[in-house]
Structure formats: structure tokens, C-alpha cells
Design a protein around this nucleic acid. Structure first.
Lengths: 146, 146
DNA sequence: TACAATATAATTGTGCACAATTGATTGTCA
DNA sequence: TGACAATCAATTGTGCACAATTATATTGTA
């Protein structure tokens, strides 16, 4: 018995997305390994380089990750001396995440990463911006329509 | 000090992709949970419903997953009585994965899943097909250019 | 001021991903 | 035939994701 078209793997947008996401993460790995970073850790640094000292909550809002993911990830980054975690004196519930000198210094080395990735992707900047927007819209549609 | 544009989180195609992929997986969860499936397990079934009895290797080629991921996943599916794993008599290195009656029967229930997802996505079929193709191309560019 | 409700991060438990290694089997070729 | 390479799945170890729960601190309110 033949599979109906809707159940065929090669028709699944979800599978294409899942594969593309893993392929991109793999593409980052050799660029980030020399910096001692994983891809999610790199994302955390992107946030911190924009604005240092967010709470775990704020970081999670930016990255759409919860404390169950972030807490152990940040602890590993703390062990690697990239960030420091400290309770907020004003509100002891809050843990603030700050860059160390090492963490700040890493930004210069990371500057070459986006260029290298964009080269691997091999598409024009405009195409990428459009694709990015489509993905953002799709994500929002799923999140809001829940 | 301001982050250069290339390092800003909201410019990263990779981050949009990573988020979209996770959002889609989350969207599947409530549809698959009643069937007792996770999203990767659902992908395995999509392959088996198309062609039953592939080796772990062939399954991995379809899904771009290695035995390190598939072996434990398939063992869980075997515990759930959805598939059976058996060494090939011709070549004892090969393990073949076959649907059980339960696994085959699940296809009828899963038939409603693509429709429900497509509804959540809320875009036209044509747009989805185009986006899917762009993602496939992007994935291939990364895989081949390695 | 008690005390319930809320907010925040951490913890627990499950299930992927993936690199690297291991073990068993098969193929090859001198 | 007998080493040796290649193939395939399983294993080991690390690091996410995420649901559900827990612990602690703060806020709102009767």
C-alpha cells in the first residue's frame, strides 16, 4: 500500500526545517570549536555582547529557552570563565549573567564567524534576509496560534 | 560598545532557523503525544510507511541521522511495539527495521497530523512548497560544500 | 501583619544529536 | 588462505531541549 502524499517524507516542510537547522548547527561547529563554544553558547554570547547583565529570564526571552536549558548551559560557560552568574542584590530571585574579560575578548575572534557561515551558505544577502523573515513569520504564527 | 551588525542576534539566519525548527517540533508534540510518538519517531514511521524493512543505515540516509541517534530511538520504538529490529540473515552486520501490526495501524491515526500542522502554519500550500525547496537547497549547499 | 498568589531559577527526568570508539562481520587481494 | 581493509551497528560521553516539579523570594491583599 502506497503512502498518501501528505505523509511522504519529502513533502514535509517540518523535515526540511529540521534538517536545515541541524545542517547549519553542524556548519558552525568547526568555526566555534576553536573558540571553545557550542552553538547555543555562541547565541548566548551574541545576546551578552549586545547588552551585558541580563537576568536568566531576559536571556530566555531573547533565545526562547527556559531555565531548564539555560541553567546548565550557563554553568558550563561559567566553568569556562566566559560569564559570571550572580544573584541580584535588589531581588534575590533574579540571577544576572555578566561577561567576564575572557567573554568580552572573545567577540573579536567571533567577528569572523558570520562571514565564514555566509560564505558556506553561498547565497546573496537579500535572499537570506527574505528567508530569515519568512522563518520569523512562521515561528510567530506557531507561537501565537497555540 | 555597540555590537557590529553581523553579530546581532536578530540578523542571524541560523537563529531564525533554529527557532523555527524548535517551534515546529513543539507544534507537533500535542498532535503526536496521543499516538505515543515523539517527532523523530514520527519521522522514522514516515519512512517505514513508505517502504518497510530498511537497514539502520538506509534509514539514517533518509533522515540524515547516524546509529548513535537511531539505535536508542529504535529500541524505544521496539519497546513500544511499533517496530521490530532483526539482523539480516544474508549479512549479519545489517539490522533491518520492520513495522509491527501496531506500527502499521498507526498510519491511519497519523493521517490527520499533516492537515492539523498545515492549519497551524496558516500559509498557502504553494508558499510552503517554495520555502521547503529553499531549505532543501540550503541544506544541500552546506552538506556538499563541507 | 499574616498569608495567599506570583515570580524566578534550579532540579529532575526523558529523549534526542553527534563525535569518537568498539566489536563483529564481510570483502579483498597478495 | 590468511592478513587486512571496509562496513555496519552499538556503545560511550557530552550537550542541548523541554515538561514537570521544587525551592526561595517577592508582591498583593484582606
Amino acid at each position: 500500500m502506497q503512502s498518501p502524499p501528505q505523509l511522504r517524507l519529502d513533502r514535509q516542510i517540518c523535515f526540511a526545517l529540521y534538517n536545515a537547522s541541524r545542517a547549519v548547527t553542524l556548519a558552525y561547529a568547526p568555526l566555534l570549536a576553536p573558540l571553545g563554544l557550542t552553538y547555543p553558547q555562541y547565541l548566548v554570547l551574541l545576546v551578552l555582547w549586545e547588552e551585558d547583565g541580563p537576568s536568566v529570564k531576559e536571556l530566555g526571552a531573547r533565545l526562547e529557552l527556559d531555565s531548564g536549558t539555560l541553567t546548565p548551559l550557563l554553568k558550563r560557560m561559567e566553568s569556562a570563565r566566559l560569564v559570571a552568574r550572580r544573584r541580584d542584590a535588589e531581588d534575590e530571585r533574579v540571577v544576572r549573567v555578566r561577561l567576564t574579560a575572557d567573554g568580552r575578548a572573545l567577540r573579536a575572534k567571533a567577528a569572523a564567524v558570520p562571514e565564514a557561515i555566509s560564505c558556506k551558505l553561498g547565497t546573496t544577502r537579500g535572499d537570506m534576509a527574505r528567508l530569515r523573515q519568512e522563518l520569523v513569520d512562521l515561528t510567530r504564527a506557531l507561537r501565537d496560534g497555540r
